[in-house]
Amino acid sequence: MQKEQKIRIRKHQVVLNRSAGGDGAIAFFLIIMGVFMFIPLYYVVIQSLKPLDELWMFPPKFIVQHPTMQNFGDLFNLLSDSWVPFSRYIFNTVFITFAGTFGNLFFSSIAAYALAKIPFPGRRPIFTTIQSSLMFTSTVTSIANFITLSTLGLLDNPFAIIIPAWGSSMGLYLMKQFMESSISDDVLQSARLDGCSELKTFWSIAMPLVKPGWLTLIIYSFQGLWNTGSSIYIYSEQWKTLNYAISQITAGGIVRAGASAAASVIMMIVPILVFIISQSNIIETMASSGMKD
């Protein structure tokens, strides 16, 4: 195809060959869609800043006339009345989220690495089994899971939530696809030839190459575990989560509407921050490069 070479350079990097009109159309589309998606968030934030009389105006207003931090104050007053110190709920949620996310990341990745990149007998049936277990969600398995966890002696402590999170098949499935699609066998082969042990190959060669994959897994797993609410596996107050504590407040109904809007904002901020931090950490990896074919 003979075309006039027009390479557009922006900030020292070549940009795709697209007309300026195309860029404009995409920017326009993004902004429209972005505003559309942003409205619910904006609405929740605005709700949390409204004084009580403005909260129940109909139709709901998208502008606060008298912004106030009263709702946040109410929320903290309510929380300080809780059975156990409020910091305990925060600790529980943070502990469950971190232990669950990183355990899930480690076990899924190492298993995915073996399933994707080490040919060993029996890997096909294992993978098929794991794939089928994608279907078993907590909704279906909750009662039987209760029996299992009680036999294992894991009831009423945070591991009742953390350990099932480690076995999340979705994480393994995701990591396996990433390993298969973006790691060239030749890179691994050359590492092995240079005397790299299988564990080290996994840790220092494969994992850096699938960084976008595991950052995604972190976001996915984090945001699920962060919202762990009241669970049938945990019944003593000292191991309840933040989500549970907050849902107790919001259950107060119309009177607590302001405090519950404030609670939503607080619960939302953390996953959003995790998302933004991990997304800005992704730099274009050199995944499939490094090989001259």
């Binding site: 076990f107 899924s108 190492i110 298993a111 690495y113 073996a114 399933l115 080490i118 040919p119 060993f120 007998p121 029996g122 890997r123 294992i126 794991i130 076995g167 393994l172 299988e198 564990l199 996994f202």
Partner: peptide, 12 residues
């Protein structure tokens, strides 16, 4: 390879 493969998937 087979052995390390099994060790890796074993926990999961």
């Amino acid at each position: 390879k087979a052995i390390s493969g099994w060790i890796f998937v074993l926990p999961f």
